[in-house]
Design a protein around this nucleic acid. Sequence first.
DNA 1: ACAATAATTGGAATAGTTCTTGATATCAGA
DNA 2: TCTGATATCAAGAACTATTCCAATTATTGT
Lengths: 142, 142
Amino acid sequence: MVSHSHENSHEIEIPEEISGLRMTRQRQEVYRILQQERNHPTANDVFMRVKDRLPNISLATVYNCLEALVQHGIIRQVNFDRESSRYCPNLNEHGHFHDEVTGVIHDVDFKPGVHLADVLNLPPGALIEDVEITLRGKITTP
Amino acid sequence: MVSHSHENSHEIEIPEEISGLRMTRQRQEVYRILQQERNHPTANDVFMRVKDRLPNISLATVYNCLEALVQHGIIRQVNFDRESSRYCPNLNEHGHFHDEVTGVIHDVDFKPGVHLADVLNLPPGALIEDVEITLRGKITTP
DNA sequence: ACAATAATTGGAATAGTTCTTGATATCAGA
DNA sequence: TCTGATATCAAGAACTATTCCAATTATTGT
């Protein structure tokens, strides 16, 4: 069923395996959408977009694919309060600024040389495995 | 129904109004629990604890009280991934370190003099209204 | 005390996500 | 290549935290 030919040579090529995760057709397409749309889509956003290419894909599969990609460190899951999870292909340590007015989510990098552990009073012996920095506010354009 | 006498003088006294919020009996008791148990309880944790003193309180009321307290800036709501929201009476700007092994959540303060805006490349014009810093990891005790 | 307003209750509804089951696809070894 | 084992997928049911709703109760201001 899966074609191994180069269907559209101008599109992003996704290898058949990333970080030990078998890249099935569904995972490829889900991943491709995250690479193309850097708008921090929700699972449902991805679901709607991916149906263009895989009309029979189910929402459960989108969730499965996203989870597999997250588990293998290929994408990141981002949560804002209790809203739907969003997904992000930017693997650099970064935070997110959520513009309350427009709803747009901006990636926020640390200034060069800054590391979180340098600015926080962590409990002794703390070994950080994951960081999530989320900011909410407005953008004033004077 | 509400007694205005000092029922137990050794207990925390909670005024009848905080920041413009009428402190009903239910809100008082919910708030008292947050002050006493600094374990970042969930709404359900609070519900179970508060039933000792208000056996007829409903979970919806606990949610209402927590929301009212959050809205008035008396407590903070904290979210870890997609888990139940937790609530925290510490109003200082701080983050949370979630110990994956024990499940304990530690408050994490900034080192003195550090401000988040100083270490992040925020989008131009960004006006931060709320910050959430959540860390996940282990604590090694050598 | 009375009317108006606010808060509480309990249950139903909602939304995002996960689970289950049966079908399909892929892989590894003979 | 065949065969069994394993992994993935689809569809829908189930789950869970939270919110909503309608009826009751409490509080406030006059």
